[in-house]
Design a protein around this nucleic acid. Structure first.
Lengths: 120, 120
DNA sequence: CTTCTATTTTAGAATTATTCTAATTATAAT
DNA sequence: ATTATAATTAGAATAATTCTAAAATAGAAG
């Protein structure tokens, strides 16, 4: 594990998650002024590949990177804002329905966040 | 509903889904040679906004567009290939856990497709 | 059926996110 | 120290999508 990989992984796991590559790059640059975007992308890809972080594809926004620890997401249908939730684990249920072979799953629940609900 | 909006919506609902904007554009061009990419993007955005199709964000691939009719997705962790599955509906369960306010949800189940499983 | 207005479409430039390439630097192994 | 391997850099390149302004079209009102 290289210096930058470690720093990026720590940053993502320490943060409240959901950071874009750009945000990670800017944050990292505060302490590591020489770092460059390609390095951030390289490391994010490697960390995802190795299962140390997870990538979150979000409509209308660049990919986000999140801690690996299992949790689900609540996504505002209107503004796209994200928050973490912990729902009952579905793995066993999915295994039963699909007959095994499941690696993981990604569950996004859409709703209207308080701000968007109020303003409409 | 304009001419192109209708054609695009029909195309997506007729297809087996999971088409990218590019694929839709090329397909549409067969019968409508004057159509242009921006029109396809404009209409896809409008159709998503109005709930007539749904957008599917997939890692490592441009957004895909799918029929609205409820179903879940099986995604190969390795090659990213997509297939439709019909799992038990979670809405009631989610409503119960979250206390209401749910609009919809998106469930992707990751596995290794037969091709990728065999080749590794 | 004309005129007016609003919306859609077009063409192509612009922007954004991400990857690629080749050179350089750092790390680890002998 | 020397070599081999992998990581990082800089910046160009690519891919996906959006924007802009002009032109075309459709629908409403007379």
């Amino acid at each position: 594990m290289t210096r930058y990989a470690r720093l990026i992984s720590e940053l993502i796991n320490r943060s409240d998650g959901h950071m874009t590559a750009e945000q990670i790059f800017l944050e990292l640059k505060n302490t590591e002024p020489k770092v460059v975007q390609a390095t951030v992308y390289n490391n994010l890809n490697a960390l995802c590949r190795d299962g140390l972080i997870r990538r979150l594809s979000v409509e209308g926004s660049p990919d986000r990177y999140d801690k690996i620890q299992k949790h689900d997401h609540l996504v505002c249908k209107k503004c796209g804002s994200l928050s973490d939730i912990s729902l009952n684990d579905l793995t066993d249920d999915l295994e039963r329905q699909l007959g095994g072979g499941i690696i993981s799953y990604d569950l996004k629940v859409f709703y209207l966040c308080p701000k968007c609900r109020d303003s409409q």
